[in-house]
């Protein structure tokens, strides 16, 4: 059944692709006006993306199984993509570098396109199984995915750090380092909040705030890696390649927490993401 939110989100996906294209055009012509246009399209698409989420919510009520669109792989991918867009808008003042917004948009585009195009992702709205019927669902998923999105920015900046192009479009290393660190400053407390809300929820749903379920364990590993990044920087004064490298490892851990655990390992979290 084709529902209205599928159409909106389909359009959103196309516009993300257009934003990407606009970046290429900007790099070719370097006109300020194009950059301005890029940001306007990002704003408009963010509103559209938000509408898509709202309509999916409304559609679920029409099916009499109303719940926030945060409950399965499809919904989490769409929401993850939305969070990436949200983060670049919130960090707009710092992310004046089109190369960074471009890679962020590639991320947002990848996840939303994967959600709609992969045959392995069920696009339907399923009713909430008893374990997910909790108000902790919202705050837990929102905090986790905002942190993941912030770590996307951190990953982009640390990866660019290793690319030694002498392009004019490349921010200098100090800026990349500062941005990496800034995004971890958002991601780390959010991830902590995500783990804590998850633990409180687990206490009510599973009878134990910590069960060493693979997803819990991997989120803890991720948390430890980013805690190490912060301490290496603040206490040990680490800078440069070493710090960028740990940030990249941290992001692989994030992705493994998100996908790997579901596809490779099994556990209590297997019903969703």
């Amino acid at each position: 059944m084709e529902l209205i939110h599928h159409k909106i989100l389909g359009l959103t996906t196309i516009i993300y692709a257009i934003i990407l294209l606009l970046h290429f055009i900007y790099f070719a012509f370097k006109k300020e006006a194009i950059l301005k246009a890029i940001w306007w399209v990002i704003y408009i698409n963010f509103i559209l993306h938000t509408l898509g989420l709202i309509f999916r919510w409304i559609d679920s009520y029409k099916l009499n199984i109303g719940h926030a669109p945060l409950s399965n792989l499809y919904e989490s991918l769409i929401f993850f993509s939305w969070c990436i867009c949200l983060i670049i808008i919130l960090m707009k003042k710092r992310l004046v570098y089109p190369i960074i917004t471009m890679f962020s948009i590639i991320g947002a585009l990848f996840f939303i396109a994967y959600a709609s195009l992969s045959p392995g992702v069920d696009k339907g709205i399923q009713p909430l199984i008893p374990a997910l019927q909790s108000n902790w669902l919202h705050i837990h998923v929102i905090t986790c995915f905002i942190s993941y999105a912030a770590f996307v920015i951190s990953f982009i900046c640390s990866t660019l750090y290793f690319l030694r192009f002498d392009w004019s479009i490349m921010p200098d290393k100090n800026t990349l380092e500062e941005l990496n660190y800034k995004s971890i400053m958002v991601g780390f407390p959010m991830l902590s909040a995500g783990i804590l809300t998850g633990a409180v929820w687990a206490h009510y749903a599973w009878g134990s705030y910590w069960s060493w379920d693979p997803k819990e364990t991997w989120s803890l590993i991720t948390w430890i890696i980013y805690a190490l990044v912060l301490h290496a920087r603040f206490v040990k004064g680490w800078r440069g390649n070493r710090l960028a490298l740990i940030s990249i490892i941290g992001f692989f851990s994030v992705m493994f927490t998100y996908f790997g655990v579901n596809f490779i390992l099994s556990g209590l979290h297997s019903y969703a993401v």
């Binding site: 060493w212 693979p214 364990t217 991997w218 803890l220 590993i221 430890i224 890696i225 805690a227 190490l228 655990v261 390992l265």
Partner: peptide, 12 residues
Amino acid sequence: LSFIAITSVLGT
């Protein structure tokens, strides 16, 4: 911390 993180992987 690194030790705990690495050995935690074993359990998964």
